[in-house]
């Protein structure tokens, strides 16, 4: 009888875990789609993420951030499977932590806020997908999923300063891509040479 009760409790716990985990399916799938840029690969990545989550269920502490835990699994799988290993090269972070003032003091290089409203959603997704993976994943975690810097840093296994510098560079590049698109599509007029 005791064993039956224990078994029932285990099944209950597993079902609760599974129910909570599957609640993040849509959000994980969207993240996988942005990372892989391919629906078939996104499905594989999500499925493998859940299989691994189930296998390592015991390492998940009930009451902690399951979404962050699942994203960490998925992100590591992505690098292992699709990119041949987790990134250690931080060369993208390049020139020191913060050169904000230098990079922002040329506001003419950016689209104005109201121009953004006229850019098609597809184009925004394309601009995000064009970012280098190390930058793209930070944008996904912080801007799309609303993770704090601290949670994003834990998912990515990097210091908070690295999250901030990657995020900053990613946003600069997004602004540049969207500004180019706005010029090409005539939403804003390109500045004339020498003007």
């Amino acid at each position: 009888m005791v064993m039956v009760a224990e078994h029932a409790a285990e099944t209950d716990a597993r079902n609760r875990f599974a129910e909570e985990a599957i609640g993040y399916l849509d959000t994980l799938y969207r993240g996988a789609l942005r990372l892989t840029r391919d629906p078939a690969q996104a499905e594989d990545l999500v499925q493998d993420t859940y299989v691994r989550a189930l296998r390592y269920q015991s390492s998940y502490q009930v009451g902690t951030n399951m979404k962050a835990w699942l994203f960490a699994i998925m992100r590591n799988l992505f690098w292992d499977r699709f990119k041949g290993g987790r990134p250690e090269d931080v060369s993208l972070d390049g020139d020191g932590e913060f050169a904000l003032y230098d990079t922002l003091k040329d506001p003419t290089a950016m689209p104005e806020a109201d121009v953004l409203d006229r850019i098609a959603a597809d184009e925004v997704v394309r601009a995000v997908e064009k970012l280098p993976e190390l930058h793209r994943e930070v944008v996904l975690l912080v801007d799309v999923e609303g993770f704090s810097y601290k949670d994003a840093a834990e998912v990515l296994g990097v210091p908070i300063g690295t999250v901030m510098s990657r995020l900053h560079r990613a946003r600069r590049q997004l602004q540049r891509s969207l500004h180019e698109y706005a010029e090409e599509s005539g939403i804003v007029h390109a500045r004339e040479e020498g003007a």
Binding site: L25, D26, T27, L28, Y29, R30, L33, R34, P39, E43, V46, L104, P107, M110, P111, E112, A113, L116, D117, I119, A121, D122, V124, V125, V128, V139, L140, D143, V144, G146, R171, L174, Q175, L178
Partner: peptide
């Protein structure tokens, strides 16, 4: 102005990338 640009960009990225359901 820069603040408005940043905050709008963040919102736009969220709205545009947060669409669609798993098959």
């Amino acid at each position: 102005d820069l603040y408005l640009l940043q905050v709008n960009l963040k919102r736009l990225v969220k709205v545009c990338c947060d669409q669609g359901e798993a098959p």
